[in-house]
Amino acid sequence: MSSSAEPQPKLFTPLSAGDIDLRNRVVMAPLTRNRATPGSDAPNALNVAYYRQRASAGLIISEGTQISQQGQGYIWTPGIHSPAQIEGWKAVTEAVHAEGGKIVAQIWHVGRVSHVSLQPGNKAPVAPSAILAPTKTYLESGFVPVSQPRALAAEELSGIVADYTRAAENAREAGFDGIELHGANGYLIDQFLKDGTNRRTDAYGGSIENRLRFPLEVVDAVTKAIGKGRVGIRVSPVSPANGVSDTDPQAVFDRLAAELGARGLAFLHVVEGATGGPRDIAPFDYLALRRAFGGVYIANNGFDRETAIEAVESGRVDAVAFGKAFIANPDLVERLKRNAPLNTLQTETLYGGDARGYTDYPFLAEKAA
Rank of each mutant, 00 (worst) to 15 (best):
P120M: 13
A203V: 10
A292L: 06
V146K: 07
T135D: 11
L216V: 12
R23C: 08
N300P: 05
L268F: 01
D246R: 04
Q66Y: 07
S239F: 05
L342F: 09
D354W: 05
Y138I: 14
E217C: 09
H97I: 03
D331I: 04
V96H: 01
P125D: 14
I189P: 08
S117K: 13
D285C: 03
G206F: 09
N44P: 13
L342I: 08
G276F: 01
N242L: 10
Y286V: 11
I80Y: 10
G142H: 14
Y358N: 06
W76N: 14
E169R: 09
V270T: 06
A133H: 10
R356S: 12
I80R: 12
I20K: 02
T247N: 13
P362K: 02
G64Y: 04
V92Q: 01
N170V: 02
P237K: 02
L256K: 15
K337L: 06
T77C: 07
N343R: 00
P145L: 08
A95M: 02
N210D: 15
Q72I: 08
T247I: 00
N300I: 01
L31Y: 05
S62L: 02
T65Y: 08
I309Y: 03
L342C: 05
E209R: 10
V320T: 05
Y351L: 13
T275Y: 12
A84I: 10
A299R: 06
K228V: 14
L364K: 00
N300G: 03
E156W: 11
F363I: 03
F12R: 03
V320C: 00
I107Q: 13
V222K: 13
G18H: 06
G205P: 14
A328D: 00
F253S: 00
N198Y: 12
D354E: 11
T201Q: 15
S158E: 14
I189T: 10
E169Y: 07
N300Y: 00
S40N: 12
S62G: 01
Q250T: 08
K10P: 01
G294P: 07
D220K: 14
V27S: 02
E180H: 01
A124F: 11
N343P: 09
Q69T: 15
V92P: 02
S158K: 09
E366W: 02
I60T: 05
A153D: 15
Q66G: 04
A365R: 11
N170C: 09
R279T: 15
N301D: 14
D177N: 09
